[in-house]
């Protein structure tokens, strides 16, 4: 057994250099040359200032903006503390949270007091940084946003469609509305 430790230590060293330094540094070099925007976090800019990442959700609460999903990352959309609520499906705390969020959503968007609210609007995502909301959720918020901004609802709906990420190849995953990009487009539209 003791004889085995000489190759063990030497091989560990060799693999650390190959897989732990050469490999990640080579990939980093290629990524920085070939696609530095994607490799550095897909940063969104406005007036030359970085204001977030198009891949990460961020908090919005003003009525003139579309609102993202509830978030369990830190105090909400904390990029340094990604994570889920981990509440089990039968946990009464989860049902309580959903009830509270649904009531707030209905009153903000002028829905009937017994209307069902899109599930993604009242549940926290797995990452706490979900950049998307469902199309159903976005459509229900459109009137509030249009009214607040003095815009035509149809114009807002057009912006929703323009900022919807579809399924890759028409098959993979689900479509979602990118909240940050939609809100930036709204600001640009006036």
């Amino acid at each position: 057994m003791r004889r085995q430790f000489v190759p063990a230590v030497a091989m560990m060293l060799a693999f650390t250099v190959l897989c732990g330094l050469l490999y990640p540094l080579a990939i980093t070099g290629l990524a920085q040359i070939g696609f530095s925007g994607a490799a550095n976090g897909s940063i969104a800019e406005r007036d030359g200032q970085a204001i977030g990442s198009t891949l990460l959700g961020q908090p919005f609460s003003e009525p003139g903006y579309f609102w993202p999903r509830p978030s369990a990352a830190g105090d909400g959309y904390d990029g340094a503390a990604s994570g889920a609520s981990n509440l089990g499906p039968s946990n009464p705390e989860l049902a309580k949270q959903v009830r509270t969020r649904a009531a707030a959503y209905r009153s903000a968007n002028g829905l009937a007091s017994d209307a069902l609210v899109p599930a993604d609007a009242v549940t926290a995502s797995g990452s706490g940084l979900d950049p998307h909301i469902s199309i159903a959720n976005a459509r229900l918020q459109a009137e509030r946003v249009a009214e607040e901004r003095g815009l035509d609802v149809a114009a807002v709906r057009t912006l929703i469609d323009a900022n919807t990420d579809g399924r890759a190849l028409g098959l993979l995953g689900e479509p979602g509305v990118n909240v940050l990009q939609l809100n930036l487009a709204l600001d640009a539209a006036g």
């Binding site: 999903r69 609520s85 998307h132 469902s134 959720n137 459509r139 689900e174």
Partner: peptide, 23 residues
């Protein structure tokens, strides 16, 4: 509790707690 979990072309079916919209 008020969540609409019916699958349509505008949202996926079932509970979204802990799940991402894109998946």
């Amino acid at each position: 509790a008020g969540a609409d979990q019916l699958g349509t072309s505008d949202q996926s079916a079932g509970s979204m707690e802990g799940k991402e919209v894109r998946f």
